[in-house]
């Protein structure tokens, strides 16, 4: 019973808090640009509105077009259940759950991509190609990051992997994971979530044809993914496990907020990269994680 209660609380936590992040990012961007910007809760309003709306579906698409966003959402929610939340721990933890998490993210991607290709639109094709191709490089970086966490903690279970502090490699890992966060969540400089120039988009181009409740599932899933990566980044770098529960929760929240603000600042201050430069940045992220791995392995300098 207690377990069930815990699970429900946790799900609520992820479901309710996740849409805050894009709101904060937009607020930061507006603040840097000197505008007032949309309210922080804008995404909640959008989701509520979309949930009530009807759906227009392409004549080419199969019923899977409507169902696949739900599967993506489930994959991301399950991944979130595996991610420990500071003092709360993870909803479920076992040896090797880090890999399950990685592959759940891949499953989410596969479902999104399949739904995008259903429409036979050239724009969706474009977005899909970019998504799956850049994911290859991001995957290498992510595996290296998980390996480095695993090496320095001697474990493959996320709950213990994220516990101990990392030492010198932490800076490298933080930088690498931050770049991966930007890439996986299709933020600037990889993708511009605000643009309406379809040629320059990745994620937005893939979901062009969605509408109504499926689009709500996609948007909510995307915000959960952002929260997931922010939580991963903060816990991988900060020694949260050694703090008192309350302090740990506070540090975690502050860290996630910091990461979100940083994303907003990056989006305000950087322009989107030309697509040919994206592999270079992802390779950099991979190398950062790789060196973090080597530092963790060899004990490293200092």
């Amino acid at each position: 019973m207690k377990l069930l209660l815990d699970l429900i609380l946790r799900i609520d936590c992820w479901l309710l808090l996740a849409p805050l992040l894009p709101g904060i990012i937009n607020k930061v961007k507006a603040w840097v640009a000197g505008r007032r910007g949309p309210p922080v809760l804008q995404l909640y309003y959008d989701l509520a509105r979309l949930w009530k709306k009807g759906v227009v579906m392409s004549t080419l698409a199969s019923p899977a077009f409507v169902i696949l966003p739900a599967l993506t959402w489930v994959a991301l929610l399950s991944a979130a259940m595996l991610m420990p939340l500071g003092p709360l721990g993870a909803g479920l933890t076992f040896r090797g759950d880090a890999l399950v998490l990685l592959y759940l993210l891949a499953l989410g991607r596969f479902c999104t991509v399949w739904a995008a290709m259903e429409t036979g639109s050239a724009f969706e094709g474009m977005g899909t190609v970019r998504e799956v191709s850049y994911a290859v490089l991001a995957e290498a970086a992510l595996i290296a990051a998980v390996l480095s966490l695993s090496v320095q903690s001697g474990s493959i279970a996320l709950a213990t992997m994220l516990g101990p502090p990392l030492g010198a490699g932490a800076v490298l890992l933080a930088a690498g994971l931050f770049i991966i966060l930007l890439a996986e969540n299709c933020r600037v400089p990889f993708d511009d979530p605000n643009t309406h120039l379809e040629l320059a988009m990745i994620h937005e181009a893939m979901v062009l044809d969605h509408s109504g409740p499926p689009l709500a599932a996609i948007l909510h899933g995307a915000s959960m993914k952002l929260l997931l990566f922010a939580v991963l980044l903060v816990q991988a770098v900060l020694p949260i496990g050694q703090l008192q529960p309350l302090a740990a929760a506070a540090v975690l929240a502050a860290g996630v907020l910091g990461v979100t603000v940083a994303v907003g600042l990056v989006e305000s201050l950087w322009a989107r990269f030309a697509f040919r430069r994206v592999p270079l940045l992802l390779t950099t992220a991979f190398l950062l994680c790789l060196f973090a791995l080597l530092v963790a392995w060899k004990g490293g300098p200092a």
């Binding site: 709306k53 759906v55 579906m57 409507v66 044809d209």
Partner: peptide
């Protein structure tokens, strides 16, 4: 919610 079909 009502599903409509249209061209891509």
């Amino acid at each position: 919610n009502n599903l409509r079909r249209g061209p891509t």
